[in-house]
Deep mutational scan, measured.
Amino acid sequence: NKASVVANQLIPINTALTLIMMKAEVVTPMGIPAEEIPKLVGMQVNRAVPLGTTLMPDKVKNYE
Rank of each mutant, 00 (worst) to 15 (best):
P33G: 07
V6F: 01
S4C: 08
M22S: 04
S4E: 01
P12D: 07
N1W: 13
A48N: 14
P38K: 09
V26G: 04
A48Q: 14
K2L: 13
S4V: 00
G42T: 00
G52I: 03
E36P: 01
L51N: 13
N14V: 05
M43E: 04
E64S: 14
P33F: 06
V60S: 04
T18S: 10
N62V: 01
I37E: 02
G42P: 00
V45Q: 01
V41T: 04
N62P: 02
N8H: 06
K61G: 04
L51P: 14
A16D: 10
T15Y: 05
V41D: 02
V45W: 00
L40S: 01
I37P: 01
N62A: 08
L51H: 13
A16Q: 12
N14P: 00
V60L: 12
Q9K: 09
M30W: 09
K39M: 12
T53R: 05
T54H: 01
I13S: 10
P50A: 11
A3Y: 09
A7F: 00
I32Y: 03
N14K: 06
T18L: 08
A34D: 03
T18K: 10
A7C: 06
Q9L: 09
S4W: 00
T53F: 08
A3R: 11
L55D: 04
L40E: 02
T53Y: 10
P33W: 08
P50Q: 11
L10R: 10
Q44M: 12
M56L: 08
G52V: 04
K2C: 15
T54G: 02
T54R: 00
P12H: 07
M21K: 03
I13L: 09
P38M: 09
N8R: 14
P33Y: 08
L55E: 03
L51D: 11
V41H: 02
L40G: 01
E36F: 12
A24T: 07
N8E: 04
P12Q: 08
N46V: 14
T28N: 12
D58C: 12
I32K: 02
M56Q: 09
P12I: 07
V49L: 10
I32L: 02
P57L: 00
M30Y: 12
E25L: 13
E25A: 14
K61N: 10
K23E: 08
A34E: 05
Q44R: 13
K2V: 14
E25N: 07
V6E: 01
I13W: 05
M30E: 12
V49E: 06
K2P: 13
P38A: 09
V41F: 00
A34W: 07
E25P: 00
D58E: 10
L17M: 11
P12A: 07
M43Y: 10
E25K: 13
E25F: 09
I11F: 03
N46F: 04
A3Q: 10
I32F: 05
I20Q: 14
G52R: 00
V27Q: 02
Q9M: 14
T54W: 00
K39F: 13
Q44F: 14
V60D: 02
M56G: 07
V60F: 05
A16V: 14
E35N: 12
Q9T: 10
Q9N: 04
P12N: 08
S4R: 04
P57Q: 03
K23M: 08
T15F: 07
P50L: 09
I11W: 02
T53K: 08
Q9H: 05
E35P: 07
M30K: 12
P33S: 10
V26P: 05
S4Q: 04
Q44I: 13
I20V: 14
T28S: 14
I11E: 00
R47G: 14
V60M: 05
A24E: 08
K61M: 12
V45Y: 00
A3F: 09
V41L: 09
P29Q: 06
I20A: 13
K61E: 09
P12E: 09
I13P: 11
I37T: 01
P50N: 07
P38C: 13
L10P: 10
Q9I: 11
M30F: 12
K61F: 10
T15M: 08
A16G: 08
K59I: 15
V27P: 02
I37Y: 01
A34S: 10
I37H: 00
I11S: 03
Q44P: 03
L17P: 07
L51T: 11
M22D: 06
I37M: 12
G52N: 09
A24Y: 05
M22N: 01
K59C: 15
M22L: 10
Y63D: 04
V49G: 02
L19P: 09
L10D: 15
V45S: 04
N14Q: 00
E35A: 13
A24C: 08
T15P: 05
M43H: 09
P57T: 01
L19I: 10
V5D: 01
V41A: 03
Y63P: 06
N14H: 13
I13D: 08
T15E: 07
K2S: 13
A16M: 12
V6I: 12
A16W: 13
A7Q: 01
A7T: 06
L55W: 00
K61A: 10
V60R: 00
R47Q: 15
T18M: 08
K23A: 09
I13R: 12
L51Y: 14
E35I: 13
L40D: 02
P33I: 05
K2A: 13
R47P: 06
E64Q: 14
V45K: 02
V60G: 00
M22H: 02
V6C: 07
I20N: 13
L10A: 13
T53N: 08
E35L: 11
I20P: 14
A7L: 02
L40M: 03
I37L: 08
M43K: 11
M43I: 06
L19Y: 11
G42D: 04
I11Y: 03
G31E: 03
K61L: 11
V41G: 00
K61S: 08
A16H: 13
Q9A: 09
N62R: 07
L19E: 10
P38W: 09
V6W: 00
A7Y: 02
T28R: 10
E35T: 13
D58V: 04
M21P: 06
T15A: 11
P29C: 09
G31A: 01
I13A: 14
E64P: 12
S4T: 05
L40P: 03
N46C: 14
P33H: 06
G31C: 04
L19R: 11
A7K: 05
R47V: 15
N14Y: 11
K39R: 14
T54C: 06
G42Y: 00
A34Q: 03
P57D: 03
P12L: 09
N62D: 13
T18W: 04
A7S: 08
I20F: 12
Y63I: 05
K23G: 09
K59Q: 15
K23I: 10
A3P: 12
V27I: 04
Y63W: 12
P33M: 06
G42I: 07
P29A: 06
S4A: 04
A48W: 10
N46Y: 08
V26I: 13
A24R: 00
